[in-house]
């Protein structure tokens, strides 16, 4: 009986947390029209975007290279190495670009966001903002949220582009796939609205989820060193799981039915 009550209680507290997360986001989004926040958002764009750029570019390059290598060894058996281009491009644009970017983003920028906001809470900076009649949702949460929403699709695009170039490097320059067919078969296969745009949409959804989780976990953390480290871990775990789960749903919606 007790365990059932415990399950009920934890479910209720989780529901309440979802409610708090929703209220937080709502409060932050009301802050859109303030021009004063633009420089703050640019600064956050630097923190979450530019500082994640290197890891995104290096990962994209290597993933593209590995895919070209793996794809080539399989495709060559069927004499279909001309399909290397579309294989690399489609996997990057549809899946790996958005998903791997979101996972790296959660690890690099998401955890940093949680820790930063958690520390601001622990050092009473959030309270102090409130006492200075400055809404922390507007001042702290909103710029970070928008920066995440903007930065993630940008990073995913860069990731895919660099990956395709990496695939070209390995496939064409090293393994000798014909450069013309690498690009032209890719061009005839990849569709702008179906593949590129859907990838961007995926990335936007992931950006919403990861940034939201990261900010909320920091905002809702227990303001102690233990609480913050726990919140940081939870950010990475929860947002990674959410990204992978959502990816399946989105893929089913976008590509499931021909």
């Amino acid at each position: 009986m007790n365990s059932i009550a415990a399950i009920g209680a934890s479910t209720l507290s989780r529901l309440a947390a979802v409610g708090r997360a929703g209220l937080m986001l709502f409060g932050a989004l009301l802050a859109v029209p303030r021009l004063k926040n633009v420089p703050l958002t640019v600064k956050q764009l630097y923190v979450v975007g530019v500082q994640s750029l290197l890891i995104i570019m290096v990962s994209g390059l290597f993933i593209g290279m590995v895919m070209a290598l793996q794809g080539y060894t399989i495709l060559i058996d069927y004499g279909a190495e001309a399909s290397l281009g579309p294989m690399v491009a489609l996997s990057l644009l549809r899946e790996l670009g958005p998903v791997v970017t979101a996972l790296l983003f959660a690890g690099r920028a998401g955890s940093a966001l949680t820790a930063e906001i958690g520390l601001m809470k622990a050092t009473e900076q959030l309270s102090s903002l409130e006492m200075m009649a400055v809404d922390p949702l507007r001042r702290i949460v909103a710029p970070r949220f928008w920066a995440g929403m903007i930065a993630m699709p940008m990073l995913a695009l860069i990731f895919s582009a660099i990956g395709i170039l990496g695939g070209h490097m390995v496939g064409v320059d090293w393994l000798g796939v014909d450069a013309g067919s690498y690009w032209s078969v890719m061009q005839s296969t990849v569709e702008w609205d179906k593949d590129v745009v859907n990838g961007i949409i995926k990335s936007l959804v992931f950006a919403l989820v990861v940034t939201w989780i990261a900010i909320f976990k920091g905002y809702d953390s227990v303001p102690t060193s233990e609480g913050i480290s726990k919140a940081t871990t939870q950010t990475v775990v929860f947002s990674s799981l959410a990204v992978l789960g959502l990816d399946f749903v989105l893929t089913a919606l976008m590509f499931g039915i021909e």
Binding site: T123, E124, Q125, S127, S128, M131, A133, D135
Partner: peptide, 19 residues
């Protein structure tokens, strides 16, 4: 409330300076 808070201020234990 926000208007009233401009007339009061609080010195937090940690100082709560923006780092």
């Amino acid at each position: 409330l926000y208007a009233i808070r401009r007339r009061m201020s609080m010195l937090f234990q940690s100082g709560a300076l923006f780092t």
